[in-house]
C-alpha cells in the first residue's frame, strides 16, 4: 500500500491546525469584544463554510488562484506563488474551510468567561495581551482543545475543496480522501478499504480523546 496519501493528509491537517490556532485566536477575541458594525458580517463569513457545499468554495478558490485571473496572476508574478494544484494552495483552502471549527469553540469559550475576570486583571494593571495570555486562554483550555481537534479532524475529512483546487497529483495534492475515490474509480476496493479503515480508526480515536478529556474521564483516571 502506498502510504504517501495518508502522510500528506496528516501533514496538511497539522499545518492547517497550527495556522488556524494563530488566526482564530485573535479573530475570536475580536468577535467577542468588538462592537463594530462589521461584526455580524465577519461572523457570517466565518460560518459560511459550515453551510456551503465544499465544491462552491473550491470552485471560487480555483478561479481566484488561477494564473488566468487577476489575483492568481499577481500572486504568480510578484510572489512567485502558484496556488492551484499545489500543497500551499491546499493549506490556504483548508484554513478557510475549517475556520468555523476553530473560531466558534474559542469564541464560545471566551464569551462564556465571566467579564469580571478580564476586568479584575485590568484593574490589577495588566494589559489586554497579558490578560488574554495569562487569564483568558488558560481558562478556555477545553474550548481550545475542541477547536484544535475538530479542525484537525475536519481537515482530514476534506474532499470537495481538495479535489477542486488540488486535483490528484501524487505526493503533492493526493490526500487520503482523494486516494480512496481514485482507488474506487479503478475498482481497487481492497486499497480503498485500507485507506478508509485507517481514516475511520484514527478519526474515531481523535474524537474519543476530546470527549474523554472534556468529559473529565482522563482526570478521573489519573487521580
Amino acid at each position: 500500500m502506498d502510504w504517501t496519501p495518508l502522510v500528506l493528509t496528516f501533514q496538511l491537517a497539522t499545518i492547517t491546525t497550527i495556522i488556524l490556532v494563530l488566526v482564530a485566536l485573535p479573530l475570536a477575541y475580536w468577535l467577542v469584544h468588538s462592537r463594530s458594525y462589521f461584526k455580524p458580517i465577519v461572523e457570517t463569513l466565518v460560518s459560511m463554510p459550515l453551510v456551503l457545499p465544499p465544491t462552491v468554495l473550491g470552485f471560487y478558490f480555483l478561479i481566484a488562484f488561477s494564473p488566468n485571473h487577476a489575483f492568481g496572476q499577481w500572486l504568480d508574478e510578484y510572489l512567485g506563488l502558484r496556488l492551484v494544484f499545489s500543497f500551499t494552495g491546499l493549506v490556504i483552502a483548508s484554513v478557510i474551510y475549517s475556520l468555523p471549527f476553530m473560531v466558534q469553540p474559542i469564541q464560545a469559550g471566551l464569551a462564556g468567561l465571566s467579564p469580571s475576570l478580564r476586568e479584575a486583571a485590568f484593574v490589577l494593571g495588566k494589559s489586554k495581551w497579558i490578560t488574554l495570555w495569562k487569564v483568558e486562554i488558560p481558562n478556555i483550555k477545553a474550548a481550545l482543545l475542541t477547536g484544535i481537534v475538530l479542525s484537525f479532524a475536519h481537515t482530514i475529512g476534506e474532499f470537495g475543496v481538495v479535489l477542486m483546487i488540488g486535483g490528484n497529483i501524487p505526493a503533492q495534492t493526493k490526500v487520503a480522501s482523494i486516494a480512496i475515490y481514485d482507488e474506487v474509480e479503478a475498482l481497487n476496493y481492497s486499497a480503498a478499504n485500507s485507506y478508509s479503515l485507517i481514516l475511520f480508526v484514527i478519526t474515531f480515536c481523535i474524537l474519543l480523546m476530546v470527549y474523554a478529556i472534556n468529559g473529565g474521564y482522563v482526570k478521573r483516571f489519573w487521580k
Binding site: 465571566s114 469580571s116 475576570l117 476586568e119 479584575a120 486583571a121 485590568f122 484593574v123 494593571g125 495588566k126 494589559s127 495569562k134 487569564v135 488558560p138 481558562n139
Partner: peptide
C-alpha cells in the same frame, strides 16, 4: 485614564478570582 492606570483595588461581587 484606562483602568490599568487608575490606582485602586476592586473587590467584585463574584470575587473574580482566576480559576486557573
Amino acid at each position: 485614564l484606562r483602568p490599568q492606570d487608575r490606582s485602586l483595588g476592586y473587590v467584585f461581587q463574584d470575587y473574580a478570582l482566576f480559576p486557573n
